[in-house]
Structure formats: C-alpha cells, structure tokens
Design a protein around this nucleic acid. Sequence first.
DNA 1: TTTTTTTGTTTAAACGATTAACTATATTAT
DNA 2: ATAATATAGTTAATCGTTTAAACAAAAAAA
Lengths: 342, 342
Amino acid sequence: MKKTSLKDIAQIVGVSTALVSYVLNNKKENRIGKEVAGKIRKVALELNYQPNQIAKSLKTSKTQTLGLVVADIANPFSSSLARSIEEEADKHNYTVIYGSSGENPQKCLKLITTLLNRRVDGLLIAAPEGTETQLIDLMQQKIPFVLIDRYFPHLKTNYVALDNYQSMYKAVQHLLESGYERIGMITFKSSLFHINERTRGYRAALADAGIAFKKSWLKAVDRATLKPEVSKAIQEFTTGKNPVDAIIFTSNTLSVNGLKEIKALNIHVPDEMAVVGFDETEAYDLFYCPPTYLKQPIEEMGRLATTILLEALINNNRVTQANLEATLIVQASTQPILHKIS
Amino acid sequence: MKKTSLKDIAQIVGVSTALVSYVLNNKKENRIGKEVAGKIRKVALELNYQPNQIAKSLKTSKTQTLGLVVADIANPFSSSLARSIEEEADKHNYTVIYGSSGENPQKCLKLITTLLNRRVDGLLIAAPEGTETQLIDLMQQKIPFVLIDRYFPHLKTNYVALDNYQSMYKAVQHLLESGYERIGMITFKSSLFHINERTRGYRAALADAGIAFKKSWLKAVDRATLKPEVSKAIQEFTTGKNPVDAIIFTSNTLSVNGLKEIKALNIHVPDEMAVVGFDETEAYDLFYCPPTYLKQPIEEMGRLATTILLEALINNNRVTQANLEATLIVQASTQPILHKIS
DNA sequence: TTTTTTTGTTTAAACGATTAACTATATTAT
DNA sequence: ATAATATAGTTAATCGTTTAAACAAAAAAA
C-alpha cells in the first residue's frame, strides 16, 4: 500500500502534477481554476495525501529539521532543554534530531557529521571540551548553528548561555550577606569557559568582600570519577585544616551527589554547613533542608536558542549572543547566621 | 561552498557517477578496475565527500531514521529511554527524531503524521490514552512500530513493557512479608492497560494473602492536578477512617510528590508509614529514609525495543512482545515490623 | 579464426516533489 | 479586426542518489 503521491492525484483528476503542486501549496492562487482546484483538494483529502518531505527536501534543500547535540539526553538539564527546543521548533514546523556527545569530542564530531549528512537546516550544540576546531569548521562552511549552555568567548558564534560569572557572584554574595565567610566550591575539572566563569564569579565575590581565597576551598573533580571525588572533597571541607562553613556546587549532578554525601556524613545543614545547589531538581525538595539554588532559565534558553537558529536560517550574517541570568532561589540551607547578622 | 556530490567526483576523475557510486558503496567489487577505484576513493577523501542522505533516502525509501514518541522528553523515564534508544540506534547507523505527546492523543497523531511524512523507517511509541485507532491505522498501513512502556493487550503489536502485574504483586508481597497489612496505593486515573495492571497486581497480592481490600486504600489521581490530589490522598490515608500503614506509588512523579507530602506532614517513614516508590531517581537518595522501589530496566527496554524495531524493518511479519520484570530494590522505607515477624 | 565469456564502465530511468518558462485559450482594449 | 492582456494550465528540468540494463573491449574457449 504505497503512499499517494502528487502523480496519483494528478492522474485521477486528469491534470499535471505541477498543477496539483501549485494547488496544494496555495501558489499562483489567482491563476488557477476554481473547480479544478476544488477537485484536486478533494481527491488529496480522500487519498489522505501527505507530501513526501524527503522529496521536498531534496528539491528545496531544506529539511525543516534541526540537529540537537547535548551532553547526555538522560540528564535532566539536557532533557528539559530538549523539550523546550522541541516545543519551539514544532511551532515553526521543524522537527528535531538529537544525539548525545557524552562530553566526548570525537563522538561530537561523528554526531555533527551524521546530522549534516541528513542535511539538518541548522544545529543546536552543547559543545564539549576540545570541539573548537569543529565549530570553526562549521563557521567556515557557513552552517548555521547556535551554541547552548557553553560557548567559546573568542569565537564569534551565536550562543545562548548563562551569565555564569554574574550568577555565581550573586550566590556567593548571598552567602556572605547571610554571614558565611569560609565558602567552598565544588566544580568540574574543565577548560570549558562556562565552568571557569563560575569559579571566576566565586572568586570575585570573595575578593570584593575582602575575603582572602584559600586554595583548599576550591575542589575541581573529574567527571569520570565524580562520586568518590565529591565525597572526598566534602570530607576535606569538614575535616581539613581550612574547614568551610558553606559549599557551592556548580552543576546539578554535583549538587545531588554532594547532598547525598552531606547526608551520609550526617552534616547538619545549615548549622554546620550552608549549601547552594545548581540547577533545579525535584531531588532538592526531598532533602531534609531544601537547599538554596541557582535556577537556570532552561525553558527560555531552549526557546531563545531555537528562535535564534531559525533567524539564522534566514539571515546567517548577524551573530546573536545571549547571556541569561540565573535566579537565586533562597531556601533553608543558607539561613542567615544570627549572631553575625545583628 | 556547495557540498561535493557524486557528480563532482565523477567529473574530476573522468568517469560516470554510477561508477563512483559503485565504488564508494563497495558494490560490484570484483568488476571494478583497481586504479580507477583507487582514484575515486582518493578524490572522495580529498573533497571530504559526504553522501546526501536525503537523495539516498528518496531513491531507496529508507531514511535510516527512527521516530520516537514519548510522553514528555523532560521526564527522567522518557529521557533515559531516549538515551538507550539513541545508543542502540546509533550502533546500527540509525538516528532518532523525537517528539513529546504530552499524553494527548491529538498531539500524538500530529506527531506520528509528522514523523511519517519525514519517512522514518519505523516508530517507537509510548502510546497515550485513546490512541488505539491510530495504532490500528499504522498496522493497516504496515508501518513497523514498537510500543514502549504501554501497550494494548487486544492489539497484536510489537511491544516492550514492564510486567506491571507481576512487579506490583512482588512489591505488595514484600510489604506483607514485612508485616504491613493496610497497604494503600496511589495511582493515575487512567484507562491505560499498564496502569491498571499495577492495581490488578496490587489487589491480587492482597487477595492471595487473604486481606480484604478496602476501597479507600486505592487513590486514583488526575495527571493534570497531580500535586494537590496526591497531598489529599496522603492526608486521607493518615487521617481517614481506614488509615494505612504503607503506601505504594505507581510512577516516578507520584513517588516524588508523595514523598514531598510525607515530608511536609512530618510522617515518619517507616514507623508510621512504609513506602514503596516506582522507578529509580536520585531524589530518593536525598529522602531521610531512602524508599524501597521498583526499578524498571529502562536501559534494556530501550535497547530491546530498538532491536525489535530494527528486526521488524527486515521482517515485518513476526510480532515480538516482551514483558520485562522490575527489580524490587529494598531499602529502609519498608523495614520489617518486628513484633509481627517473630 | 570465430564465438563465448569475462571484465570494466556507461546509459538512463527512477525516487517525488518544485518551479521557471512556455502554450493555448478567452477576454478586453484599441 | 487586431493586438494586448488575462486566465488556466502544461512541459520539462532539477535536486543527488541508486541500479538494472546495455555496451565495448579484452580474454578465454571453441
């Protein structure tokens, strides 16, 4: 049972396929006979004609498809982004093909190649470490793309990302204002700009408050060995020679794993230790002391990235860069230290 | 800067496009001159030839693309499934287009239509309520698809799902063996088979243990108003005339929201109330009393569904149906009641 | 030597749409 | 009556592949 094609309709109505195409696409409207048009439409409906997008794409070299490269679609951050992108894309009659890079540049390259072979109209990329050359390549090939979440500051590309510096600054400032002064941070070992912006914001806030940063306050863990390293870091934070009274995490996985360890160690939040998490997750609500956290505007990031990409498909000259603000959701984990507050 | 095509290569080497195609696809290997083949390969490499999948698809009417319809890609269950599917698909050189139905049959139909217009080779569908006719349609059109997570028992389709009856039975049995006898369940108001299988397993386990089921033990909530209804249900469970000593949840969202409410009401788990959750989530680990839960083999479901679909693409006659077992992960929330156990 | 077979390559149609350019009437203007 | 213009439609090329069938030249068999 083959799908009906323009040809089938043309044959039945007794006209050329061209005419059928014109009618069904509402082109040359004023130059087409009313009865014939009606007949064509009727037959198309009866046979439940569905245009073959593949053929259409081949001719127009537009696939109405966007390629999405995330770190890991199973991560809540990525999947929320994916939903928001899907929603916005759908509004403009685009569909989305996705793939996970696993933070691996080779896998990322393979993915991008695959997506391009399928002639996606444009790409949305959460770029892993070491993919700058790939992006430069895309720029040279004039392939429209928008970076999401991460970007390379010296690359003049479209991007939608968080203002990580500002967001972290805000979080640290909040801790300071709440009376915490020995603030530790657990982050990823990474050369990625967005990660380093987080520590930069952290250090700037400390500096601006006249607090001397101690090296042992900053723990950078390896993605591959996240759990044990986070555990170790927290233990060092409490038992080391420079104990901290607050911890900031810089990602959702770090936050959740950190909270697990805090719970396991029976550390009391916020009395013994204040906590600031990153990203929103339901998990927070189940922790005995719901943590203050930086909420990324994921919905907006996805929506914006998609509209920027769709814009770029029309006009690939302008470069749009958006730095969004995270919202600090203050909860019980950063309660002001009373004796300090007055 | 147009992409290089077969034609370009043919022109440079001075042969026909057909020959280039044969060489690059390793067809008619024994009938092709060695030097020419070498030259073609060399030029293809130099120009970084990437076949136009669109053109290929049009000719072969195979897109090497699978369509994935989930309830909501942002839900951890769906996104984990999506990753597993992506992984398996990638192994066989397929890519995945996704879309969220939002549990809405109209949206689902629109999605399926879109995916089919893009001529996906097959579909993986988490079917919402009221989509049976759509599936029957697909069957009549002989479009290969595999249902995931949900299926319609009277429809002879491929599917990969949980043995919900057995899984719930197991969970309830565990509670009974641990000494709990007044077991409540919070589930979705739904006509979907997989949901009802869960309550069936629940009731069967009660019956088999000689316990008379009380209507007030079973709360069915509406997806749209989940939060308040879950809260209300739990309050009724504790304050009503038939208080329960254990609650089973039948989905990850229900579990997490239920735990939130339990925490809010200061109900002590497991002394005042035992709890069994559904699905795995990091959130559980942050709850003061990590709950026992039914762990779905999501990885395997995705992998299996994909291989079944790929099989079906080759041989669409056989129907494969898989009912997987959930694993009961026993944690502190269902500690045996001592005086009952002996 | 002639015929057959093998080897290496080309021709050309097809997939299903789009669209510029053309044709053939009918209508209106001059 | 003739030219100009509108109206309603058709023709045919094209997008980039695949692939059956045809073809020519060389090698093997007769």
